[in-house]
Amino acid sequence: MQIREIDVHDQAQLREWYAAEGAAIDQDRPFAVRRTFDALVNQVTVPSDYYQPVLLAAFDGERIVGTADLGYALKDNTHLADLEITVVPDCRRRGIGRSLYADATARRRAAGRTSACGELNVVDDEGPLAFARAMGAESVHEEDHLVLDLPMDAEHLRRLEARAAGDYEIVRWQGRCPDDLIDAYAAMRTQMNQDVPTGELDHEAVVMTPERIRSGEERLAKSYDICVAVARRADGVLGGYSLVYLPLGRDHALQDDTLVMPGHRGHRLGLALKLATYAAIATEHPERTRFHTWTAPENRAMHATNTAFGYRPVERMHEVQVKD
């Protein structure tokens, strides 16, 4: 067995890497949300000012039997590396994961990164968590992976709408943020990064500038539709936002951030914003049959809102981190 960095411009090899990663994920997680192959191609072949990915593979002869997705943020958290490892189901218990971890660790240390973090998900088998701990990592943050089947019951939806805030205007866009809102939107995205629970994860909150948002919009447009709703008070001040990603060619939607800014909380704005994005998806993307979202157990306000919608937990996501 050999560990090698794959040539991301070799479509055949990249497809085999993608298939090996997918086989491992699908075996363990019935509700897993996997990126499309086109999204992977876009991520690893289009240069970014903000992130550098490295794809490693364990080869048994010419067959890829394990994968490591290694990456470095370039503008912030330069002490960190991202790392996620998978092993195809019929090749486990052979030390492949350990070999991938050792190779990735040597590479990230050579890059000057003193810590690695990644996400793993537990359904019934805690094997992935046991592996991470065996490598010296600790679980530093947990979130519930929640799903909501679409469409929602019409009567239940009406009851939710009756509870939502009515003294804010909901402004919605798809794709590119309007120029006149970009500064306020960037400020809210930064606030989200500062407020979102991250447990004991050793990282710094990312500052979202208008330039960074524009760069992200341009890159993501090749793989996702983006739906955003913001709440605007009568004086023009934005009080919150909700962000949804719709992977191209898939039948689900990813409910990402929902934030209510300090000073605007207590008005059920989170509910109103989620209803706005739900309405947009139901009307404009009826092919979507499921929403996915992730919420920390200690985020009681958002858990209450998600429960009111009808979201149900399907797995527990652990953010794990190892430090030199």
Rank of each mutant, 00 (worst) to 15 (best):
S139E: 12
S139L: 14
S139P: 11
V140S: 12
V140N: 13
V140H: 12
H141N: 15
H141E: 14
E142R: 13
E143D: 10
D144F: 05
D144Q: 08
H145P: 00
H145M: 10
L146Q: 09
V147L: 05
V147F: 05
V147E: 03
L148E: 09
L148D: 08
D149Y: 00
D149E: 12
L150C: 02
L150M: 00
P151Y: 04
P151E: 09
M152N: 00
D153Q: 03
E155L: 10
H156I: 05
L157K: 12
R158D: 14
R158H: 09
R159S: 00
R159E: 07
L160K: 02
E161S: 10
A162T: 00
A162M: 06
A164Y: 08
A164F: 01
G166P: 01
G166A: 12
G166R: 13
D167K: 04
Y168S: 07
Y168W: 14
Y168L: 04
I170E: 13
V171A: 11
R172N: 13
W173K: 14
W173G: 14
W173P: 14
W173F: 15
G175P: 15
G175F: 09
R176W: 11
R176H: 15
C177S: 14
C177V: 15
P178M: 11
P178Y: 12
D179N: 13
L181T: 00
I182P: 03
I182F: 01
D183I: 11
D183S: 15
Y185H: 01
A186M: 03
A186D: 08
M188Q: 11
M188A: 12
M188I: 12
T190M: 06
Q191D: 09
Q191E: 14
Q191Y: 06
Q191C: 13
M192F: 15
M192R: 06
N193R: 10
N193L: 10
N193Q: 13
Q194E: 11
Q194I: 13
V196P: 03
V196K: 03
P197K: 02
P197M: 08
T198Q: 12
G199S: 10
G199E: 04
G199C: 00
E200W: 02
L201T: 10
D202V: 07
D202E: 05
A205K: 01
A205W: 01
V207C: 09
T209K: 00
T209M: 05
P210N: 08
P210L: 05
E211V: 03
R212L: 05
R212Q: 11
R212H: 07
I213V: 08
R214S: 09
R214G: 08
R214K: 14
S215E: 14
S215Y: 02
G216C: 01
E217P: 01
E218P: 00
E218D: 09
L220D: 08
L220A: 10
A221T: 01
K222I: 00
S223T: 03
Y224D: 07
Y224R: 09
D225C: 04
D225E: 07
